[in-house]
Nucleic acid binder design. Structure first.
Lengths: 399, 399
DNA sequence: ATCTTTTCAACGGTACGCGAATTAAATAGC
DNA sequence: GCTATTTAATTCGCGTACCGTTGAAAAGAT
């Protein structure tokens, strides 16, 4: 356990104040004091230090209290956007998405590279990622030296703490020190994180879980991922491992173990389609789900039944997750949602059937169709989170 | 978030010191200082306060360092057993087990009541539990006023924070405020906890997980339970809910949802036996597993195949848990282990098959056949844990 | 009896947070 | 136009926690 000394005390309160400012926009010291339960004295001291470090900025204009604002006007404080820059990336099998954000998490520039990278050698992937990061940074009118941290979100089993990729559908090899590799290439601190964790944090910071301290997110893409928010923190497995939902076993079939990924993975749903023609081409280019949507509208029975089967499998899996975590909300994201009603309906039905009666009504299912940018923004949030948290580990925030 | 002030700081360090003393037996101040990274000054101050409060005791004799003990002999410190008394109980469908322990968790007296209580009205159960607690306390030569906390461990979905039982196989009703009821009856603070959580803490404190900070425990009894230790803390679902493994869905069968409990629950395994005769009698009396063991030794094929099926189901479930939590160790406990090799072998095989390749070798499976006392002792540990932790919440430890 | 070694308590220094008093900045009223 | 009022933020003094250093106490070794 960490030993508690005055330094830690200050770090905790400092983080608390900084996070309050981040979450509640321009905010006056008095209100920070109310929200954090810290005395106005302490808030003043801490905000002075934050101002000194350039992490926040005062704003005199916006005192928008009740019309008749009597006494001394409040000085609103907000994050200094220029305090830091980070790059967030979503690395998927058929596309790379990058964003550069400021200290607030606002996107300064984004870049999407619709290229297929899975099964490429690591060197090639690293090349492409490096190129994308550099390009996106330039687009934002910055240089790599201005960037504090890069966070890469990718599917699979990611060991965040060590920066190793234990296994990923887009890498041939296992146990790759991708964070180390990219840190060397970019000469900028680079971390990796599960894409599901990234978008979980995105929803906590900017999306549909801003109001919650606990939450579960399920990502349905090529890979099926899980993110758990527990007590305002990303819950990572024992060793900082990410969860990989696709590996969940649904049952023992005649041909051995039936995993969720074999029922509800993107390629498995689409895989039953003819392997040639326009649709196959679309799949190869990563537009599979869009086409699938059209085909479902046109009542393509093969696809509809595949979608229904996938929905059932996911619904059951979610019920199991709810059984374990009992979260107040479950957010579903990912390209598979585009399959539309047949998929969603069977998912909902299977969930309703599979969720234990004692937990019925505990968790609310929310569907979210964010763009890829949002995932990348989540990765950026992970990077920012590390910057925020740094006072815990070292002496001061990285500047 | 909790605001950090000197009081919290001291509470943290105090807890840290107290926990170090608990874990590392009689221990000198210097060694506490080494382990906690606190200065000797601070350790002296804190231990003085603990001595003052009567929570720990000095022991001058036992300086068992290297033979040639040169300078001033160390004063060993240890928990004062008399600092508190708690009652822990395991409440199962066919038996009640109570223990009274001291502040160290050592058992002062134990009491087993082999009576069937499931499906009895709440009032009757409460009566029996009340009686058992009182009797066990008297057996320890104490009065209820000497007892600081009572902790009842029971199967099902338990909301520890509020003391409510959302659902339990031994209660007809749902959402019972059992902690409140028993607090009133006993006039002593009473808390409830999932039996699985109780024995998880028991293993962390006294058993096969003393060396670990992260761990998963699976309890196989009438009900299938789950305990997760994360960062030295019991991981509870969002609302302080316990996990109920039996509700996990293994698949969709022809007759609807197939839950783990229907494959591996104690009554389901034994349920295929003739409902009359000596065996049925044994089941009714809660000796089912012992008899089953004998029958399996005698190569009863019906039972063996039931055991194999159950083992497979549990093995798959464990693989899924490992997929989610990636713990270094999985401890299995409970009466079903008595089924012996057919069960354990099929469990191991199914697990090996179902665990994702990327996590192979991460988790070690450990089987543990502790007695019921150990479960009750775990419940007592939960109670003690609350006493230890109290400085976090209030001003000082409950004395 | 004296020396050596180790433990532990005492003293001064620093950092933090808090409450009360003080200063700052704006409006309301005369 | 001036003062009173109101609200915000800062300053000051106090208490407490931790730490590093110093010195006293306690035992075996010489």
């Amino acid at each position: 356990m960490k030993t508690a000394d005055p330094e830690l005390m200050r770090a905790i309160n400092r983080l608390n104040v900084l996070d309050t400012i981040r979450r509640h926009g321009p905010i006056a010291r008095v209100e920070i004091s109310e929200r954090t339960q810290l005395s106005t004295t302490t808030v003043s001291a801490i905000t002075a230090s934050l101002l000194d470090d350039g992490l926040i900025l005062p704003r005199h204009e916006g005192d928008i209290r009740n019309e008749a604002a009597r006494g001394r006007p409040r000085v609103m404080l907000e994050l200094n956007p220029d305090a830091a820059r980070v790059v967030g990336a979503k690395i998927a099998a058929n596309r790379l998405v990058f964003v550069v954000t400021d200290f607030r998490g606002d996107v300064l520039s984004k870049l999407t590279l619709p290229i297929r990278i899975d099964r490429q050698p690591i060197g090639v992937i690293a090349d492409l990622v490096e190129d994308g990061v550099r390009r996106c940074v330039v687009d934002a009118g910055l240089s790599l030296e201005d960037v504090d941290t890069v966070c890469l979100g990718l599917p699979g089993v990611i060991e965040h703490r060590t920066g190793h990729i234990r296994s990923s559908p887009i890498f041939r090899d296992t146990n790759v020190d991708f964070a180390g590799e990219m840190t060397t290439r970019l000469n900028t601190p680079t971390i990796v994180e599960s894409d599901a964790h990234a978008i979980t944090l995105a929803h906590h910071w900017f999306g549909k879980a801003r109001d919650l301290e606990d939450m579960v997110l399920i990502s349905l893409e090529q890979t099926l991922g899980l993110g758990v928010l527990h007590d305002n923190q990303l819950f990572r497995g024992a060793g900082g491992l990410s969860h990989n939902l696709g590996d969940l076993v649904l049952g023992m079939g005649p041909r051995g173990v039936v995993r969720l990924s074999s029922q509800a993975g993107e390629s498995e749903i689409l895989g039953e389609q003819p392997t040639s023609g326009r649709f196959a081409e679309a799949i190869r280019l990563g537009r599979g789900m869009t086409h699938a949507q059209a085909l479902i509208k046109a009542e393509d029975n093969t696809l509809i039944s595949a979608a229904i089967r996938a929905g059932e499998a996911v619904g059951v899996a979610i019920a199991n997750i709810v059984t374990l975590f009992a979260p107040p909300r479950v957010i579903l994201v990912g390209s598979s949602l585009a399959l539309g009603e047949p998929f969603l309906d069977s998912l909902r039905n299977a969930y309703a059937l599979a969720v234990p009666p004692s937990l019925k009504g505990v968790a609310e299912l929310v569907f979210d169709d964010s763009t890829d940018d949002f995932w990348a923004q989540g990765a950026a949030a992970v990077a920012l989170y590390e910057l925020y948290e740094s006072p815990w580990n070292t002496t001061g925030p990285a500047l």
